[in-house]
Simulated assay, not measured.
Amino acid sequence: MGFRDRGVEIKTPEQIEGMRAAGLVVGRTLELLRASVRPGITTGELDAIAEDHIRSSGATPSFKGYHGFPGSICASVNDEVVHGIPGERVLAEGDVVSIDCGAITLDDSGQGWHGDAAITVAVGTVPAEVTELMRVTEEAMWRGIAAARLGGRVTDISHAVESHVRSQGDYGILEDYVGHGIGSAMHQPPNVPNYGRPGRGPKLVRGLALAVEPMITLGSKETVVLDDDWTVLSEDGSWSAHFEHTFTLTPAGAWVLTALDGGEEMLGRLGVPYGGA
């Protein structure tokens, strides 16, 4: 493991394998939570399911205790964009919930490696515009990952995310909350904005791992934070969607460490080489 470009962490192939172990725990936890979402369940119950699954998988929740955050997941409902604290809120028919999850696994040396991913899930039937928002947001994430190439720059990802969202309609792209580097810590340099010109920022090199996470609203990009100092809402009350994956680049192509299939299916649909093991 080395550092370059103002603290950007570069992992060895073996260390990336450690991140894949964490990523699989996150991916499986999110699939369990997706299947658990239903009208009548509380966000606190989802949090308990997540923590139990992460710990029973031999991992530790990344979020719990992080700067005092009380949950193992972030559960953000409707106009809550990100960082919602799980608790007594009951999900109702027609809601959408963004579930953000992180896990830490230890390698043979005792070093911890992080995985971080998020999904947005409809609770029963939701309005067509919300279904479309979810589709646009998730596809923008994949198009951002697909734009990454060894030797390219971080904002190649940013530009691809923004270009896709802009091509699909009049949506709000959050600017104050961005993707990030990840590895031996959950949040590392460099930032990965969801907007901007291509060809800027640190170079995309082997051993760099990034979390790409577009946060998109049906209205304004402006946000407010609740008195809990965590929950981020859209300023105009518009509903939002949030998707995230952790990925890296190998000489063969992109490898999505938090996708159960490594991203092979979605990258193939986009005509991008798959770089996973």
Rank of each mutant, 00 (worst) to 15 (best):
G94V: 11
S158Q: 09
N194C: 06
P70V: 03
G199T: 12
I145M: 12
D236Q: 08
D116T: 03
G65V: 10
A22M: 06
G169R: 14
L267M: 01
S57P: 01
G124L: 14
H164A: 12
L249D: 07
V225W: 02
E80A: 08
V178D: 10
G276P: 01
D227M: 04
A122W: 06
G275F: 11
E88N: 14
T137I: 04
M134W: 02
I41H: 07
V161Q: 15
A254H: 03
G201A: 02
V97L: 01
I16V: 14
V272A: 02
F3W: 14
S62V: 12
S62H: 04
R4T: 14
V232T: 03
I216K: 12
V25G: 06
G110C: 00
H159G: 08
V232I: 04
I157Q: 10
Y274K: 11
I173D: 09
G276W: 00
M266S: 12
A259V: 13
I182H: 07
W255E: 06
F247A: 06
Y66A: 09
R34L: 08
V123C: 00
G151Y: 02
R143Y: 00
P251R: 05
R166L: 07
N78G: 03
A59N: 07
A148L: 06
R20F: 09
G65C: 05
E138F: 03
H67M: 14
E93W: 06
Q111A: 04
A209K: 08
V8N: 06
T125S: 11
D79G: 10
G112A: 12
R200L: 09
T42P: 11
L30K: 13
R6T: 05
K203I: 06
S62W: 05
A59F: 03
P214M: 07
H242R: 10
E213F: 01
E88T: 15
G219L: 10
K64G: 05
L30A: 13
M215C: 05
I119D: 14
E80Y: 05
G40Y: 05
D261A: 11
